[in-house]
Amino acid sequence: MRLLFTTLGSRGDVEPFLNLARTARVAGHDVRVARPDDADTDAAGLDSVSLGIDLAELSVQVSDGSALRVFRERIRPAMARALATTVDVALDWEPDVIVAHPKVLTVPAVAEKLDIPYVQVELTPTLTPTREFPAAGIAVRSLGAVGNRLTYRVVHSAGAMFASDVRSARERLGLATRGRERAPSRTLAAISPALLSPPVDWPDTTVVTGDWKGTDVAATLDDDLATFVAAQAPLAYVGFGSMTGGDAVARADAIIAGARRAGLRVMIATGWGGLTPSPAMLGDDVLVRRGVPHSAVLPRAVVAMHHGGAGTTHAVTRAGVPSVVVPFLADQPFWAAHLHRRRLAGKPLHRHRLTADNVERELRAAQAYTARVENVARAMASENGTATALATLTGLA
């Protein structure tokens, strides 16, 4: 099969697609990946093409200025380029199936033009309506059976701000610009059923595969990092991924101070700039990197403080490590509340209200949940999300 994987977003949106693409390539399929320019991910060994958009740069611009102005002047044109480029890539590659992130809104049109199936990917529960809980990113607490289902309409309506780009693509492809667009043949929910039980009212067309974990290994660690994570003193992993904004220095300093009070060393992954420790807070018990391989570092930690993105939430839980979640936006409050409700994490902390006292308290409290997290991790170990997803894709041919 010829498979086109296309995605937009930060590391959590891109890395799962790369992992599935590698699984498909190893299985003998022809694979191409269309992705953003900079998502802190490694596409080595894959046929990877750029969508002409750099989300890291755009994120910095939003944090430095008016969000509305940056959206109009920077984000809107960049998204238009990416959506148009997706059409170019698909027409050039002529795949048998397209596997797409829901942000890539022009995929239904080009799939219709090529008369091929496409599959949408649900990395967090936002696409398939259920009575059991609201769409991640819309609400945290249940709004009742009817209210919960309605929240998924809100998510779907978000694409309306790029409706003109979809219309332009359809005109360019010679397709009708009115009427219902082609529906996906399947929805792949790259979510661990051990972490989040699939709702009983999800249809058979939504396939819960397990998350699409990667194969980053300890051999990629530099000497200082390998030595630091191997030391015997208890370690806290801290990383907020692509999150930015607010006082990144005060935030990092409060976390370091609280971790020290809790008797923990600190491995800080600064990501796109959400954490910036001041020089005065550094010491032998703190190591700072832009990013680290989760599978090599997390198993050595006794607790992880993170933003609650779906990818990081799965990685931390799979490593058997309890969490303290500091949610920023989107689906992160959903995962923060879900982990705390299942007693896999301490109480979520507000990103603007971090103090040495509350950081110490929650880092200590979270460690009481280690045995519960380890039970979930054992269940997750039996899942093979990329293999399950690939079997679904090959069944469409």
Rank of each mutant, 00 (worst) to 15 (best):
D204P: 09
V208S: 08
R265W: 03
A368T: 15
H307W: 05
D38I: 04
I138Q: 13
R141D: 11
K113C: 06
G271H: 02
S50G: 11
E383N: 05
P293Q: 12
L3F: 02
T206P: 06
L8H: 00
R141E: 13
S142P: 07
S382T: 12
I116Y: 00
H294Q: 13
V140M: 04
R170E: 09
R2L: 06
Y369K: 09
Q61V: 10
P234G: 02
L83Y: 11
A371G: 13
G174F: 00
R300N: 14
R74F: 05
R289C: 03
A111L: 04
A218K: 08
A194T: 01
D201S: 14
L105S: 10
V288E: 03
R22Q: 05
V316F: 08
A233T: 14
A158W: 14
T355S: 15
I116R: 00
L143Y: 10
Y237E: 04
A248V: 08
L83V: 11
K113W: 00
A163Q: 14
L264I: 14
T220N: 07
I98S: 06
R153Q: 13
L349T: 13
L363H: 05
N358D: 11
G214R: 00
L221C: 06
D54V: 07
S48H: 11
A259T: 09
A231Q: 05
L339K: 01
E73G: 09
E383R: 01
Y369Q: 14
A319K: 05
E57N: 04
I191S: 05
P36L: 06
A24N: 01
A262C: 11
D64P: 00
M305C: 14
L8S: 00
S164V: 13
L235M: 11
T85E: 12
A24R: 01
S59R: 01
F228C: 08
A257S: 14
F71T: 15
P293K: 10
T317Q: 11
A379H: 02
P277I: 09
T86E: 09
